[in-house]
Design a protein around this nucleic acid. Structure first.
Length: 470
RNA sequence: CGGGGAGUGGCGCAGUCUGGUAGCGCACCCGGCUGGGGGCCGGGCGGUCGCAGGUUCAAAUCCUGUCUCCCCGACCA
């Protein structure tokens, strides 16, 4: 049961707005465990939809899924110096189990890297075993200082992919394929988010990676959120975990590996980027409920019409839900569907039926249309498509409107107040990056002049995308 | 660890400066009217004011101590 009635539009700052929507739409709540969360049924339905869509795309690139243990022996995690260094401050450690103090502490995985690489070392013998392509859906724990529900919780759900290859070129090509064909395509085509793809600077790179590619999206308040990353790990992890193979000439070689991941943070990003003052706006492509048919009254004629509309929509393959609970006030019911971000609503009541129509309303634009009773399925299909396009277009337009070209670090700091700055990397460099950081601005990624991912993150003539980040 | 703030019915808060019978909104229960965007009217249930001690005729309010939580910064998928 919710208790407050404070509406999102009444809160001044955006994060508060965000928390209200998360709570009122029934997505998640804080857990009894510090910094963790309970994902409520509707929030989980969105995550399931994301999983389904993303998993299909991952598998299409030739991967299968597997599952590794939650606990990692501390000695295994520390085999790659940078890995343990990168995560040491935020790992949770189990020192006691079965009523005894453990002879070796177990780390609750902040990532499965270490365990998976040490296993790959046994699985890989020959060049015939390569490439090795697996993905895992699971959870991870990072004891962050400042948790934010769905954006940075101490436990989060994610997928992490790990691949091993014979050559650097093959590994690089795979990382790119995942980054573009899986992450970029998913974020753009399914979530309707305009994202910047690029490489992380040395400072922002994943510990142990030689190249980290990222998808950065701009939230409604102009701040950045990293939506997914793909790493080329070079031979660093192969060396630390002895991942070797014998090539066709009989020579022992070190593998080249990649890893990549995305998490429940995407649900948070979806809200922060598409949400408005009335709640969520979920793109039809992943909306657990695409259309809700609302019975304005519960007289027999209305209920019969609602039933027919539901049938027609179901037959058309629409994920439809019916709301015929007239004992609850209409305004209250409509508000609830708005908060959940159901993309299209069909209202049916005596007033409509007298005219032989039903009312089709789009959540993204608020557009209302009276359509003939027999035309519901077609009208809804059209509205769903328009809503998907509309949200994507809004995201693109807003992002572009808040992205400006600048020439100096000082200008970048100013522009980052409410958006992104495109700054020549040559005018910034690691020193400029540090100056940006002092003003809570970071370089989200480095791009080529035409907005692509640089083949070499150390190349000249790159453009830095700078902004404040969550 | 540094800097701020808050603990009062289930939830959100006012009251504290200036001590005097603990209040409001939401939720909940009952009755009625309503019903095309969180509806209206009336009636109810519910709180040892974080904890401990002190001052006082009298403490949510003043004093001392203590506990807890939140926000900002350093961390970050």
């Amino acid at each position: 049961m919710t208790s407050t009635t404070r509406l999102p539009s009444q809160s001044a700052d955006f994060p508060a707005w965000y928390g209200e929507v998360v709570r009122q739409a029934g997505l998640a709540e804080s857990s009894a465990v510090r910094g963790a969360m309970v994902i409520k049924p509707y929030g989980y339905a969105i995550w399931e939809a994301i999983q389904r869509e993303l998993d299909a795309r991952i598998k299409a690139t030739g991967h299968e899924n597997f599952y590794f243990p939650l606990f990692v022996p501390a000695s295994v995690l520390s085999r790659e110096g940078r890995l343990i260094e990168g995560f040491a401050p935020e790992v949770a450690v189990v020192t006691e189990a079965g009523g005894k103090t453990l002879s070796e502490p177990l780390v609750v995985r902040p990532t499965s890297e270490a365990l998976i690489w040490s296993t790959y070392a046994r699985w890989i013998q020959s060049y015939r075993d390569l490439p090795l392509l697996y993905n895992q859906w699971g959870n991870a724990v990072r004891w962050e200082m400042r948790p934010r529900i769905l954006l940075r919780t101490s436990e989060f759900l994610w997928q992490e992919g790990h691949t091993a290859h014979a050559t650097r070129e093959d590994a690089a090509a795979y990382a790119r394929q995942i980054h573009f064909d899986v992450y970029l395509a998913f974020l753009r085509d399914v979530l309707g988010l305009h994202v910047f793809v690029g490489a992380k600077t040395a400072m922002e790179r994943f510990a142990g990676a030689i190249n980290t590619m990222t998808c950065e999206a701009m939230m409604r308040d102009g701040k950045a959120l990293q939506m997914a990353t793909s790493h080329e790990l070079g031979q660093n992890f192969a060396r630390a975990f002895d991942i070797e193979y014998t090539d066709a000439e009989g020579e022992r070689q070190l593998c080249w590996t990649t890893s990549w991941g995305s998490s429940t943070r995407m649900v948070g990003g979806l809200i922060m980027a598409h949400g408005d003052d009335a709640g969520l706006r979920v793109p039809p492509a992943i909306a657990p409920i695409q259309t809700v048919v609302v019975a304005v009254k519960d007289d027999d004629e209305t209920l019969a019409a609602v039933e027919r509309a539901e049938g027609a929509l179901r037959d058309a393959g629409v994920r439809v839900r019916v709301d015929r609970d007239a004992s609850t006030g209409l305004g209250r019911r409509l508000t609830e569907w708005d908060l959940k971000g159901v993309p299209v609503r069909v209202e049916i009541g005596p007033r409509d039926l007298k005219e032989g129509v039903v009312t089709v309303v789009r959540r993204d634009s608020g557009e209302k249309a009276a359509v003939p009773v027999d035309g519901v399925a077609a009208a809804v299909a059209e509205a769903l498509e328009a809503a998907q396009r509309g949200l994507a277009e809004e995201s693109r337009a807003r992002t572009e409107a808040h992205t400006r070209d600048v020439a100096t670090v000082e200008e970048a700091i100013e522009v980052a107040a409410d958006g992104f700055a495109r700054l020549p990397w040559s005018a910034c460099g690691p020193d400029g990056e540090r100056r940006l950081n002092e003003h809570a601005v970071s370089i989200r990624c480095l791009q080529t002049a035409d907005g692509g991912v640089p083949g070499d993150p150390e190349a000249g003539d790159l453009v830095a995308i700078a902004g404040r980040a969550y």
